[in-house]
Design a protein around this nucleic acid. Structure first.
Length: 623
DNA sequence: GCGGATCAC
DNA sequence: TATGGTGATCCGC
């Protein structure tokens, strides 16, 4: 199996601005712009820069294939945002990034001056050959994800929504139905913006308990095809079906067709799948659906046209940085390999070359509990400036965190306070201590010590996170408890080592617990296209991903009328998630479960990057 | 060890 | 008229 390689792009640079200048030699190629769009006709010069308009469209905007007329939609979004603090913050970030790019370009000019690029390219070609030798086409990796998961579950439960544009979620949408997506409505979009794009838009509440229920069914199906399947969220997973196909004497396509049919049969929900020799290719669903020939040529050809933004680890920032040196597609990486090589620190040569070759990790393993690095809670609220009120928010967050840590069995040594100003700027303040912390009073006290010196501030978010974790369920509980009372010192790290690869079974933990832990966080994702998968590339259109917020706990709730319609049927019920018992009716229990699911749970997942190289990003930013 | 940044989901 | 939450990683100090 191939381990992913390295770091990725990153940034950094010196300062100042630079008139692009020579550049290596920007060959036209795809790096040049679409002829149409960029006419200098940008009438109003004080218009938002193109980069800002794109930024305001949200993280998902660039990721999906989206129609080419996206610019109109972006305009509307930018217009609706204008003047808000959110907008100003985005503008600031866009400006900072633009400056950062100027520095990079200047650095590039310095670094390439008088250099024999052909020679540099020759060196890269040697690396290329070396990496090519590591190509592994022996494994059959599948990436599956549900089509518009939340929206389709809602559709299942409320058929009258069929054919109508609707969004799931309140202030911010967790999902947009296909009919809403036609208007440019996306998950993660603020409700009022969505309404502007689509006045007819219907808002539907989230029903997390339902999604969880369906998710379990789906995952159970996937697991039949790969016991080591790795769930990435409630509607997405990677599988290695090499063994299954061999055992049953079937092809990957047959296997996946069958699996998809099973999911649909058992849940009435549809699932998209990509089959390829590694995770990156599978996720990009070559040809929209299904298989890409497991051959070097086909893979190289596919990669050549693939937008750099589709590569995991390349987000909006890295996309712009790479674009600034002429790299928009993976094929462009080769064209500009000399510059990438000379600026390895900034861009990550190894990672990019691997990406160009279409080589990535093909290791699929579920995430182990002991890989967890942190646990936290945070809450957004209407801007507050009053000290007492802020402390109250902090206390609430501390309580939530305690509940979570207790429920999941963790304690830790370092507490980090996070706060967001009303300007949307984010800051963190941390403190490590000598004892293990997981109780509300401790969390609150430490948080307070970190927050008070910063006041006065006007905040819109407060969060707490604990790191340097110790697993209170590791080993036998006796040792775990014993340690809890011992002074926190570096030695114990044993519990956090990865013992996952030694084949030992998943330690113990109640089966219910294990199941819960395996349940990934919730978020809606991907556009899975509203169409059939086109023949040509550009088939699959991954869009964005949005993890739902916890249910808004209306702090104000004046005229709350809930009392008026309290149904009968009250009964002592136990929440399957947190175990708490309460006297409620079914609706009440459901609401509580929704609450639990939305804030609690949370996958241990995610740690995959540390196991297989990740394309992380390294940036380097001053200030 | 801390703080800022970027990213995935 | 209200632009999320959880977790990870990397870099520079």
């Amino acid at each position: 199996m191939i381990e992913d390689s390295q770091p990725v792009p990153s940034t950094s640079a010196s300062t100042s601005k630079v008139p692009n200048s020579a550049a290596s030699r920007a060959p036209n190629s795809s790096s040049s712009r679409a002829p149409n769009s960029r006419a200098p006709i940008s009438s109003s010069k004080e218009d938002d820069p193109d980069s800002l308009v794109r930024r305001l469209a949200g993280p998902s905007a660039g990721k999906a294939g989206l129609a080419t007329d996206q610019s109109d939609i972006n305009r509307i979004i930018a217009e609706a945002s204008k003047g808000s603090k959110f907008y100003e913050n985005e503008k600031r970030k866009d400006k900072d990034l633009t400056e950062r790019i100027d520095k990079i370009l200047k650095l590039r000019d310095e670094v390439t001056r008088g250099v024999d690029l052909a020679k540099v390219e020759a060196g890269v070609d040697a690396l290329l050959t070396e990496l090519e030798g590591k190509r592994d086409l022996s494994q059959t990796i599948v990436h599956v994800d549900m089509d518009a998961f939340y929206a389709n579950v809602e559709l299942l439960d409320n058929p009258s929504l069929k054919g109508k544009p609707f969004g799931v979620g309140h202030g911010v949408l967790t999902t947009a139905s296909y009919d809403a997506r036609k208007f440019g409505v996306r998950s993660g979009m603020a409700g009022f913006i969505a309404k502007k794009l689509c006045p007819e838009l219907i808002f539907v509440k989230n029903h997390f308990a339902r999604y969880s229920e369906m998710s379990k069914k789906i995952m159970a199906v996937f697991q039949r095809y790969d016991a080591d399947m790795c769930p990435m969220s409630c509607d997405e997973a990677y599988l290695n079906v090499t063994g299954y196909c061999k055992e049953h004497g079937i092809t990957a396509e047959e296997c996946v067709s069958e699996m998809r049919a099973k999911v649909e049969e058992e849940t009435k929900l549809t699932v998209s799948a990509g089959i390829a020799p590694n995770k990156m290719l599978a996720k990009n669903k070559p040809n929209g659906q299904y298989c890409l020939p497991f051959e070097r040529e086909a893979i190289m050809d596919f990669m050549n046209k693939l937008s750099i933004r589709k590569i995991p680890g390349i987000g909006r920032v890295n996309e712009r940085l790479l674009e600034s040196i002429g790299i928009k597609t993976c094929g462009d990486i080769y064209i500009h390999r000399a510059v990438v090589s000379l600026m390895d620190k900034q861009f990550g040569l190894h990672f990019l070359i691997q990406t160009y070759l279409g080589i990535a990790s093909n290791v699929v393993q579920p995430h182990a509990r002991e890989e967890r690095k942190s646990i936290g809670a945070e809450r957004t609220f209407n801007t507050l400036g009053d000290k007492e009120k802020l402390l109250q928010k902090l206390e609430e967050v501390a309580q939530e965190l305690e509940d979570d840590m207790e429920h999941s069995g963790w304690t830790g040594r370092t507490v980090t306070l996070k706060y967001k100003l009303d300007t949307y700027q984010v800051f963190t303040r941390a403190r490590s201590c000598d004892r293990w912390v997981n109780k509300k009073e401790e969390l609150f006290k430490l948080g307070k010590e970190l927050l008070l010196p910063e006041l006065p501030l006007k905040l819109r978010l407060i969060g707490l996170r604990v790191t340097k974790l110790k697993d209170l369920r590791a080993e036998d509980s006796v040792a775990g408890i014993k340690r809890f009372f011992e002074p926190a010192k570096a030695e114990d790290e044993g519990s956090n080592k990865k013992r996952k690869l030694d084949g030992s079974p998943q330690v113990h933990g109640a089966s219910a617990e294990v199941l819960q832990e395996a349940m990934p966080g919730f978020h809606e994702d991907n556009d899975a296209d509203m169409v059939e998968y086109p023949e040509d590339d550009d088939g699959a259109v991954d869009e964005d991903v949005f993890t739902p917020a916890s249910p808004s706990k209306k702090p104000k709730s004046k005229a709350h009328s809930s009392r008026t319609s309290k149904p009968a049927l009250l009964a002592e019920q136990e929440c399957p998630i947190c175990g708490k018992t309460m006297e409620v009716d079914n609706q009440g229990l459901n609401d509580h479960i929704d609450f639990c699911l939305s804030r609690d749970v949370i996958l241990q997942a995610q740690t995959e990057a540390s196991v297989e190289g990740r394309p992380a990003s390294k940036r380097k930013n001053k200030r």
